[in-house]
Amino acid sequence: MARRFAPLLTLIAWALVWEVVAQSVEISVLPPLSSVLVGVTEVVQLKSFRLALLETGRAFGIGMALSVVVGVPLGVLMGVFRPADRLLNVWANVFISAPLTAVVPALMPLLGIGQTTVIATVFLFAVWVIVLDAREGVRKVNPSLIDMARTHHASRLAIFTKILVPGALPEVLTGIRLAVVRGVKGVIIGQIVIALVGFGALFDLYLQTFSMERFWALVIIIFVLAFLLVEGVGLIERRVAFYAKSR
């Protein structure tokens, strides 16, 4: 019990440090936590915030859905079909660690300065880790399970749906969790590079008007949302973890 709450205690301690330091020393960009928390209660009531949240959630959701729909089959294909693996692996490995932020400016003239660009950014950030993890998962499926299915005359479709996909599920879910982390970064980076949509516009506004309470309030809200999202996927991931080890 104590161990589970230790991180929380740490964060409370840091919050206190923040409050005390910001109270005693005047730092222009870092108002005391208490006034930031007041900022949080104000920001969440703003119509502009709710619209931005909706817009961001939509872009993130669509981008993530695309990443899963494209990434899982692609990864499974790479896992079972050597030529596909040899053709795609290079690119997946390049894009999983390349500074894709540099691509966002190219998306803007291509897809317009709006949602589509943000969705594409989320997709670009998120899809590769799903591809590589799905590939990894399929490769970890015990080959004798495939033999077993074949001795029972399983069709290719049955092998795919009943053996490969459930067998790869632990890695696929890990991939999706990591993709959520990347997708959240993608949605925020896309929005602040464009600076005209969603939270990007709000961040820009608060910076221009130097309303640091609201700026930090928005940061905290986004961090909390990101954390909850990642934990949510982690929860599902742990439910299938029991068989990840016993393969």
Partner: peptide
Amino acid sequence: PSPASAFVFQDFALMPW
């Protein structure tokens, strides 16, 4: 694979899920 035979695997080949 023929329906006339059934295989028992060294590593059991049980689906862990």
